[in-house]
Design a protein around this nucleic acid. Structure first.
Lengths: 201, 201
DNA sequence: GTCTATAAACCGATAGAC
DNA sequence: GTCTATCGGTTTATAGAC
């Protein structure tokens, strides 16, 4: 938060960053406090000074700093899309931006941890993921409504349509990040999304 | 496989079933071999008779028996859908059937374990999930092509359209099973899917 | 705030009797 | 095949010096 961090705050953040990295890579249970302390270069006892409740408090802190902020900053601008092709390209651009969010290590790790360690979290802790997705649906719906090329559509269609588009994006992202374990945006992925957008618009 | 199981085979399956249950509920690392043996009612050493490579071999065996068989049995029949409403209802029925697959404890647990313990698995081990989804896309595409109400559409649209439909289903299932931790099929879910199908068909 | 040393419990795996 | 007993190593967490 504050710009002029004390040395101690740096230690705390070091522990958090290392932990986030290791939790995402090897899982929460498989990551020992020793591994964290060693990688962070801090002594055994120090961790319990910053996180009195131990290892689980580190996990809670990490999850609490989800990527909700950055994704909610995602904005679209379809108000100048006068043709279907324009709109498709604008939506592809939006997918690229969403994908880009996960290129940020911290965002990617928070996401993976929330999914993988779901059984250790409360419903509230996992909820930020749904909030991000709902926010995305709302933003896309709003922008679709402003797109000139879609003016002939009844108002009731924009909500479901936005949800379909998010579903298309979400499937690709989950398939790649969670199952294939791939973080590289390939042309193959874009070639698969584009005809789907084309068929629903 | 064989109908007349020996007593020993029962022991092996007991260990597998208990493990699958506990891995899904508490995670692989958090589940100790002692917990498994105690719940299965078998002695400490016996586990290593059936699984000489230890705990990880149990995980491998569980993942190897994924739900690939049952989901691939899912079939649709759209050849008598002469109106859009018919087709929508048939697709909703198909969603119900997919959801039903995860009501089977073994299927649900295999799914959750494959996602949560992804870091412990090879690409090949996680791949069965993608195969199931691809099989579903193919099946739906084939059936859409046979639907009378869609005969006016160009052939090239059926593939992308089927993929969109699977995306819609997959988003709901992942959101509910992986994030909300909900296994109950609610009317709210169906009310959300239906207008999406309506807008893409 | 940061360190070292260690407690107390637990882990996966094995040895060997029956 | 199934059991009991236990090894060697590791875990989270704490106590207490500086």
């Amino acid at each position: 938060m504050s710009k002029n961090e004390t040395k101690s705050d740096q230690h705390k953040e070091r522990i958090l960053n290392i932990s986030r990295e290791m939790f995402a890579q090897n899982g929460y249970e498989a990551t020992t406090t020793r591994m964290i302390n060693q990688a962070a270069g801090t002594a055994e006892g120090l961790m319990y000074y910053y996180f009195p409740h131990g290892k689980h408090e580190i996990l809670d802190t990490i999850v609490h700093q989800g990527i909700i902020n950055r994704v909610s900053e995602l904005q679209a601008e379809f108000s100048e899309c006068s043709t279907k092709t324009d709109l498709e390209e604008e939506l592809m651009l939006m997918f690229d931006n969403i994908w880009q969010v996960f290129q940020d290590e911290e965002n990617y790790q928070s996401f993976v941890i929330t999914i993988h360690e779901r059984t250790l979290l409360s419903n509230d802790q996992a909820d930020w993921l749904l909030q991000v997705l709902e926010g995305l649906v709302d933003e896309i719906a709003k922008q679709l409504k402003a797109a000139p090329v879609l003016q002939s559509r009844p108002d009731s269609q924009f909500g479901p349509l936005a949800r379909v588009i998010v579903s298309i994006f979400q499937k690709v992202i989950y398939d790649e990040l969670l199952i294939k374990n791939n973080r590289q945006l390939t042309q193959q992925m874009r070639d698969q999304i584009k005809p789907q957008l084309s068929v629903v618009l």
